[in-house]
Structures are given as structure tokens and as C-alpha cells.
Computed example of a mutant assay.
Amino acid sequence: MHKVLVLYPPPTDPAAFEEHYRTVHLPLARKLPGMLACRFTLSVDAGDRPSPYFAIFEADFPDEETYAAAMASPEGQAVGADVPNYATGGAVVLHYDVES
């Protein structure tokens, strides 16, 4: 299993981020070929201090090759090109093989 984790720092306009993320970006991301599942949250809690992240997205792929092919596909290119349209704080993308 290969997991993708996208961490979004706080945007300048949280309401605009959420609107675009839910109505434009997530529908694009859900079209990634080979993706097994995805989930996200806009409720990041860091306990007794402010969270360094506003939102988190997770996706599962069967392996790293499938993830790489998905991101190189037209759908993956559309996902990447859309990020600057809503993520004014940028995005940190991590991906890794899951061990048990």
C-alpha cells in the first residue's frame, strides 16, 4: 500500500479555500486513476496549541508506481495545476509505502 498525505497550512481566506476545495479540487482529485480511496478533514486539532495545518488530505494507492502514473496523467496534472487556485498557504505533499 502506498499512501499520499497532503498538509495544507492556513490559507488567507479559509471560507474561499473550503468552497473551492469541496466544489472544484476534491472532484478533480477523486478522478485520479488507480486511487483506491481518499479522505480529508478541515478540522485539524493540535491539542493545546494552534495547528500548523488547516486541512489534511489522504489517499491510498496500491503501489508507488500507480501513484506516479496517476500524478503524470491528465487528471493528475489538473489536480496539481489547481492547487494555487485555493491553497494560498501552499501545500506539503508526502508519499510513502505503508509498513505494518
Rank of each mutant, 00 (worst) to 15 (best):
M1S: 14
V92Q: 08
A91W: 08
K3Q: 12
T66L: 02
S73N: 14
A69C: 06
P62G: 03
A87W: 11
R22E: 14
G80V: 01
A87P: 03
A69I: 07
Y8A: 01
C38F: 07
A70K: 12
R22H: 09
D63K: 11
A87Q: 04
D63Q: 06
P50D: 13
P10L: 06
V93S: 09
S73A: 10
V44P: 03
E65D: 08
K31A: 05
E58T: 15
E18P: 00
P74V: 11
P9Q: 08
F57R: 02
G76R: 00
A70D: 12
V83P: 00
M71C: 00
E75A: 07
V93R: 15
G76M: 01
V79Y: 06
Q77T: 14
P74W: 12
M1L: 13
Y21H: 15
P33F: 13
V83G: 01
A55D: 15
A46I: 12
L26R: 08
G89Q: 10
P52F: 05
A29W: 01
P9Y: 13
Y53F: 15
A69E: 05
Y8H: 11
V6D: 01
Y67G: 00
F61D: 05
G76D: 02
A78T: 04
T66D: 04
Y67I: 04
A16Y: 13
F57V: 00
D97W: 12
T23A: 09
V79I: 04
D45C: 07
M71G: 00
M35T: 10
A87S: 09
H95A: 02
Y67H: 06
E64V: 01
H25A: 02
M1T: 15
T41V: 13
P74K: 03
A70W: 08
H20V: 06
T41F: 14
C38N: 10
G90A: 05
F17S: 00
A91R: 14
L7H: 05
A81F: 09
P33L: 10
L32G: 02
V4P: 00
A37W: 15
Q77P: 09
K3R: 14
Q77G: 12
L36S: 07
P52V: 03
A69Q: 13
D82E: 04
Y21N: 06
M71E: 01
N85Y: 06
P9H: 11
N85P: 11
H20W: 12
L94T: 04
A16H: 14
D82P: 11
D97T: 10
A69T: 15
P11S: 11
A70C: 09
F17R: 06
V98W: 12
G47N: 02
Y86R: 06
G47E: 08
Y21P: 03
A59R: 04
F40C: 02
G90W: 14
P74F: 13
H2P: 00
D45P: 05
D97G: 04
V79N: 02
P11E: 09
V24Y: 13
P10W: 13
Y8N: 03
S43T: 13
M35K: 02
T88K: 10
L42H: 08
P52T: 07
Y21A: 03
R30W: 04
L36F: 00
T66Y: 04
E99V: 15
K3G: 12
H20S: 05
A70Q: 14
V24S: 10
I56H: 09
A46F: 13
R49Q: 08
Y21V: 09
G47C: 05
Y53Q: 01
P52E: 07
A78E: 06
P14I: 01
F61Q: 05
H95T: 06
P84Q: 03
A29L: 00
D60S: 12
R39K: 12
